[in-house]
Amino acid sequence: MSTGSDDPVRAFLAMLSAERGASANTLAAYGRDLKGATAVIGDLAGADRAALQKLGQAWGDLAPASLARKASALRQFYAFLQDEGLREDDPSGALPRPRARRPLPRLLSHAEITALFELAEADAAHGDPVAVRLLALLELLYGSGLRATELVSLPLAAVPRDAPFVTITGKGGQQRLVPVGTRAGKALTHWLDLRVAGGRYVFPSPRGGHLTRVRLFQLLRDLAARAGLDPEKVSPHVLRHAFATHLLEGGADLRVLQTLLGHADIATTQIYTHVDASRLVTLVNQRHPLGVTQGQVRIGG
């Protein structure tokens, strides 16, 4: 591509617009980041690794997400310069690489969960198959912590009638056994009794195949609105978070929770420990020798 400009930054932004279809907001954000870097080190196109290291110092007080965005803009800029033959080397390895913190999951309180279930149970009590299906879906999301894809694509063969568990094939084709509680088991049995025969999925689609994730999302949002909750707060993934959070609050072991959720790395499961800090402090106060000894300072006040 011929830039047709003596200003490398302007040429880079033009490329983003023409070749990648970047929006005006994206272009403006990249422009601000590159302009800010120029104010610190001068000529960006000719900057060396030592100059870029100064940016890491200047950006030291930024939030990890802001730092990552600025560094990304510069990395793309230097990759562009190499592609255009304007530089032979890429000094961007000297830029900081912040480890972005995993965002905390959105949470539903016990009261909000209760509101969802009370409405779903009232609807299902009339025996309408659509309502019975929704209650079964809700029970498996919150009661067993299934991912949306795992739930909607659950095959009939994975649901033994005589055992309180289902066999889930999760990410990477890994299989795990997931317990199905008494409540969820009753809801699932009720749905299977009403389900139209045929097909290989527990939750079939009228058009063939299985219920889609989009439709599951829509059903939950509608239920939340009718239950007086903010629909934006409710999704299949949020219910999975609630399953994990409330189990941890109840004393579940983190390794057990990892198995139930199908996490390959326990670091993924540890995101839930933040929600139960008060219980952990209480546990230390009650069980640690300094916490239970009369006259000793108690942790947490």
Rank of each mutant, 00 (worst) to 15 (best):
D128Q: 09
D7M: 08
A264F: 07
D89E: 14
S2F: 07
A277E: 13
D83Y: 00
A197L: 02
H274K: 08
E88P: 01
T3R: 06
R221M: 03
T149W: 02
T38E: 13
V275P: 01
T169S: 04
R240M: 10
A51N: 06
E88W: 05
S92Y: 05
Q174N: 08
A157G: 11
I113K: 11
D128K: 09
Q286G: 00
H126C: 10
A45W: 00
V9T: 12
V284A: 10
W59I: 07
L254P: 13
F165C: 04
E19G: 03
V40D: 01
Q218K: 06
R215K: 10
L141E: 08
A131R: 14
P8H: 05
T114K: 15
A65K: 15
Y78I: 09
G21M: 11
A187T: 02
V234F: 11
L107G: 03
L34T: 08
P204V: 03
R255M: 01
F117M: 15
Q270N: 04
R195C: 07
G145P: 02
A68F: 09
A115F: 09
V275R: 03
K54Q: 15
P289G: 08
G172P: 10
R213V: 09
G42D: 13
S235F: 02
I266D: 00
H246L: 06
R255T: 10
V196M: 02
Q270E: 15
R102W: 06
A122Y: 01
A158H: 08
M15Y: 15
H237V: 04
V178H: 03
H210W: 06
E19I: 06
H263T: 04
A124V: 08
T3W: 08
A244K: 11
G295H: 05
K233P: 01
Q76T: 13
A225V: 06
A187E: 03
G21F: 06
R255Y: 03
S66M: 09
A24D: 12
G93V: 14
D43H: 00
R240T: 07
I41Q: 08
R298H: 15
P155S: 05
T259F: 02
L27S: 02
H246I: 11
F165N: 00
T3G: 13
A100S: 09
G85D: 06
T282Y: 00
F80A: 09
D6Y: 00
F117D: 10
A11E: 05
A94V: 13
S23P: 05
L151T: 10
L104W: 07
H210M: 06
E139Y: 14
V40C: 02
Q286R: 13
L146V: 08
G228I: 11
L140Y: 02
A224S: 08
S5E: 03
S205Q: 04
L141V: 11
A242K: 03
S278Y: 03
F217H: 14
D123I: 03
Q294R: 14
Q218F: 01
F80N: 13
R10D: 11
